[in-house]
């Protein structure tokens, strides 16, 4: 299950005075089972990029292959692709519409053609996965708190059991606790299912702790692509893109500059702790 992008370029409102190139010749390969973070400054093209992966936007130029098949082929089933590549949008709570949370989560599975019993089962499973409080299953989705709405909306996508899960800024507008809960839940799901997960964010700190690969977008292009520690080595360049490496990177860099024999590759607080303790042993 791999997704491959070849020279993908996308323009909003092409041929008008307002034309904006949001993707500029992007080449990427997203392999099966990876946990990928896509990071970039506001307006760098992250959302545009991920909307190509399930065919919601059609590249102005370039090709995308899903499992080796060109998704722009005339007889390619885009609807099927969308059920395999699940997408949770930025502020997904704005898409809720049903009378109860449970019914809303069932919307996706029903569109997949599952019968009511199967859809109910899927909805139940998905709501459990996002740790949605059982008492609220039959509430109107409009009466929930922001964090609860977010969970319900994520469950709506999970219930379709996508092979690839894309989350566009799933933590935007949540408090630190809500943010950690959602990210932990996503990481846990990735570990259990082994599916490809793509997490879009503009916070390095968020992503560094969870993903195995970081793709940095800058000005419609891919600026860096690699394991977190490789990407964070470019922390000076990241700053010029309006991004920052995690705090830990800065501490380790400064410690090294001050003459301590620490490795600057630590990206999480845990790793940094081990490194620093090593020096004093």
């Amino acid at each position: 299950m791999s997704i491959k992008l070849e020279n993908v370029t996308y323009q909003y409102s092409p041929d008008t005075a307002y034309a904006i190139t949001a993707l500029d010749h992007v080449n990427l390969e997203l392999r099966d089972g990876e946990f990928i973070g896509i990071i970039g400054h506001t307006g760098s093209g992250k959302s545009t990029l991920v909307q190509h992966l399930n065919g919601l936007l059609k590249a102005t130029e370039g090709v995308i292959y899903y499992n080796g098949q060109n998704i722009y082929d005339k007889d390619y089933d885009l609807k099927d692709l969308r059920t395999q590549v699940g997408m949770v949008f930025q502020y997904p709570e704005h898409q809720l519409f049903e009378t109860t949370v449970f019914e809303d989560v069932k919307f996706g599975p029903k569109n997949q053609g599952l019968d009511d019993k199967e859809a109910t089962l899927r909805a139940y499973e998905a709501l459990e996965k996002v740790h949605f409080p059982t008492d609220y299953f039959d509430q109107s989705p409009f009466d929930l708190s922001g964090g609860q709405k977010r969970r319900a909306a994520i469950a709506g996508v999970l219930a379709m059991k996508p092979a690839v899960l894309i989350l566009d800024e799933p933590t935007a507008g949540l408090d630190p606790k809500g943010r950690d809960e959602i990210l932990d839940m996503i990481a846990e799901m990735h570990k259990k299912s082994g599916n490809t997960v793509i997490l879009v964010s503009h916070s390095m700190e968020d992503v560094a702790n969870y993903v195995d690969r970081i793709i940095v977008m800058n000005d419609a292009r891919v600026a860096f692509d690699g394991a977190p520690k490789e990407v964070f080595r470019h922390y000076k360049e990241l700053e010029t893109m309006g991004l920052a490496a995690p705090e830990v990177t800065y501490i380790m860099q400064e410690l090294q500059a001050a003459g301590f024999p620490v490795s600057v590759d630590a990206t999480t607080i845990q790793e940094a702790k081990e490194e620093i303790l090593k020096v004093f042993r």
């Binding site: 919601l56 609807k79 949008f89 898409q95 919307f107 709506g156």
Partner: peptide, 16 residues
Amino acid sequence: EETDKIMKAQMARGAD
């Protein structure tokens, strides 16, 4: 813009 966004979000959930 909002219509566009919601439409996409529902299409991602298989709406037709």
